[in-house]
């Protein structure tokens, strides 16, 4: 049968920052081709195709029902592959090669991570799973 793609609606205007992205106008309807865990979704709108930030989209049916995974307060061990300097109050600043615990894998690509006493958002594209079990 035909492949039915999910339709999402843009909740804000977005101006693309690199080629292969799409500009968005509030209310635009897009079909989702691929949901990357780094928060960039590959979408199509009429004849155009390109990447869009997932945080600017909501499902057309049931806007409050994003299929977001539950938080895992035990944490999953990941290593930062790249440093990032917090630009917002709720983000963490980390260098490359730091081991952290991922608590919540948000669809917008900004995962909630824990490092010691600190908790905040970090770009998932700068994280790699360690494959180790957390020490209890």
């Amino acid at each position: 049968g035909p492949i039915i793609l999910e339709t999402y609606r843009a909740i804000a205007d977005y101006g693309k920052s690199s080629k292969y992205e799409l500009n968005l106008k509030t209310g635009d309807l897009l079909e989702i081709v691929e949901k990357s865990p780094n928060g960039w979704w590959f979408c199509q709108r009429e004849s155009q195709r390109g990447w869009v930030p997932a945080s600017y989209l909501e499902p057309l049916e049931g806007p409050d029902e994003m299929e977001e995974p539950e938080p895992n307060y035990e944490g999953e061990l990941y290593i930062t592959t790249k440093g990032y300097t917090a630009a917002e109050d709720d983000e963490l600043t980390l260098g490359p090669g730091e081991t952290i615990e991922v608590i919540h894998k948000l669809l917008d690509g900004w995962w909630v991570v824990r490092k010691g006493e600190q908790t905040g958002h970090y770009p998932s594209m700068y994280l790699r799973k360690t494959g180790e079990k957390r020490e209890v």
Binding site: I11, A12, Y14, S17, S18, Y20, E21, S36, N38, G39, W40, F42, R49, G50, W51, P53, A54, S55, Y56, M66, P71, Y84, E88, D90, I103, H104, D108, G109, W110, V112, H121, P123, M125, Y126
Partner: peptide, 22 residues
Amino acid sequence: SIKEPPQNPPPRPPAELRRKRP
């Protein structure tokens, strides 16, 4: 190629639209 996602982290949602956070 076009199938490769951008190499920079996606923007955070506009503050007033930010979804509920833990």
